[in-house]
Each structure stands twice: as C-alpha cells, then as structure tokens.
C-alpha cells in the first residue's frame, strides 16, 4: 500500500497538525483503504482476494506445511518485491526497472522510517540531521520521488506511449511523485524555512497520502497487488504456477 505512513520525522509539539491527529487519521484511512481494495477485487467477481493469502498459510490442501509456506511467503516477497523479480525483471529498458525499483524501495523505506521513528521517539521531537532514521526517511522520500519522476518521464518521452497511457496511470504516478517531493520539501523547510510554509507543505503531503490511500484501490495498483498475491498464493499451495 505504498508510502502511506510516510509521516515526516519532525513533528513539533506546537504543530498545527499534532502527532495524535495524524495517527488517528491513518488509523481510519488504512483500514478503509484495505476495505475498499477488498470490495474492488470482489467487484471483479473473482474468488481470490489479496487477503486470502493469509488463509492460504493455514490451508489444509497442498503439500507443504505451515512452516514451509511461511518460508515460501517470505522468499516470494523478497524475490518479487525487494528484488523486483516479477515487476522489474521483464522491463525492456533498465531505466524502467530503476523507476519501478525506486518507487518500491522508496515506499518501503518511508514506511520503515516512519515506524522506526514512532517506536524510538513516540513524542516525535525534532531529530538531528545525522539521525540514521531520519536519513533513511529522507533518502526514501527522495527515491520515491525520483522513481515516480522516471516513470512519468518515460511515458512522456514517447508519443505513442503517452497516448496509450490512461488517466488512472497518470494520476497514480503523479500522486506518488507528489508524496515523495512533498516529504523531501517538508524536511528541507524544517531546516531553514518558515514554520508556516513547512506546516502547509506537511498538510499538503498528508492530503496527498490520504488521496493515495483512498485512490489506490481504484487504480492499477489494486490489480498489481491482486496479481502479485495470487502468484504468491499459487507458490504457497505448490500449485503448478507458470514458469517465470
């Protein structure tokens, strides 16, 4: 679900949008996003939804047991998502693979950084610029933004490709780009900008994240998540999947 929790790491106690409010917002939006995803997939009238993958872990049929399945789930996740075996493995241009990789890794990094920040300092006081968690967050946001930029530019650079791209793809990629860019901007402003500008930027980033969460189930992302989890489920149940 993308870079949903990419909350900036500098949250002042006096900020307009307090930490608690952000947590509340995410607590509402995240489940809502999942429910929407579930409904969308159900709308296709297919028996399998991405959440079925957890049921598959405990399923009775198929050869391997729970432990083996968990291992398979982990390795499939690592192979397909972290190392882009499926999503990036068959891209014609290396640039395209990089675009996808950066978006994927940037999103994951942002989530990780946010979680780490929340765990290490729940009050979320400003951290030093050299803080590793903060560095991870910044780099991830930048990666996300540059990945999305690559994807957009790649589509823009070719007339035929530009025409063949539909509005959903544009919207999704632009949202990703904005989430990344605004994250970097918030951090930059926190170092030397006015407080108000930073807060405004922060609110706009929150808005873009919310939009992404609400929109993702209706974009192509829903299909990618569905397809990816379906393939993982197949390998979990040891069904003869298509040779990669």
């Amino acid at each position: 679900m993308g870079p949903s929790e990419a909350v900036p790491l500098i949250i002042d106690r006096n900020a307009i949008v307090g930490h608690a409010a952000v947590v509340d917002l995410m607590a509402v939006l995240l489940p809502l996003s999942f429910v929407l995803l579930y409904l969308r997939v159900r709308g296709w009238d297919v028996p399998f939804t991405p959440f079925g993958i957890f049921a598959s872990l405990f399923a009775k049929e198929g050869k391997p047991g729970f432990a083996a399945r968990s291992r398979a789930l982990l390795s499939a996740t690592a192979q397909d998502i972290l190392f882009l075996k499926r999503a990036g493995g068959r891209c014609e241009e290396p640039l395209h693979t990089w675009g996808r990789g950066l978006v994927m890794w940037g999103a994951l990094g942002s989530v990780a950084a946010t979680l780490l920040a929340a765990l290490t300092d729940p009050a979320a006081v400003p951290m030093a610029l050299t803080d590793p968690v903060r560095l991870l967050g910044d780099l991830s946001q930048a990666a996300l933004a540059s990945g999305a930029a690559i994807l957009i530019l790649r589509r823009l650079s070719n007339g035929a490709r530009r025409r063949a791209t539909d509005i959903h793809t544009w919207s999704l990629q632009c949202l990703l780009l904005y989430v990344g860019l605004s994250g970097v901007a918030v951090d930059a402003l926190s170092q030397g900008g006015s407080f108000l500008a930073m807060e405004a930027m922060y609110i706009s980033q929150l808005a873009s994240i919310s939009a992404l969460l609400l929109y993702a189930p209706f974009s192509e992302l829903a299909f990618l998540v569905w397809k990816g989890s379906l393939l993982v489920q197949k390998s979990l149940l040891d069904e003869a999947g298509p040779p990669g």
Binding site: G88, R90, R155, N158, R161, A164, P242
Partner: peptide, 25 residues
C-alpha cells in the same frame, strides 16, 4: 491461461498497438 500473469505491465504493447487496443490493460 496461467501464463497471462507473466505480463510485467511495461506498456510497450499499448504504445505499439496501431488500433489502440491497450493490450497491457
């Protein structure tokens, strides 16, 4: 039919299609 999931969604086909079929979609 199980091979259809191999599509990487790169969109080259949709760009190349002369009839605007959008094969990727």
């Amino acid at each position: 039919k199980d091979y259809v999931y191999l599509c990487s969604g790169c969109g080259l086909c949709s760009a190349a299609c002369p009839k605007d079929v959008d094969p990727q979609g």
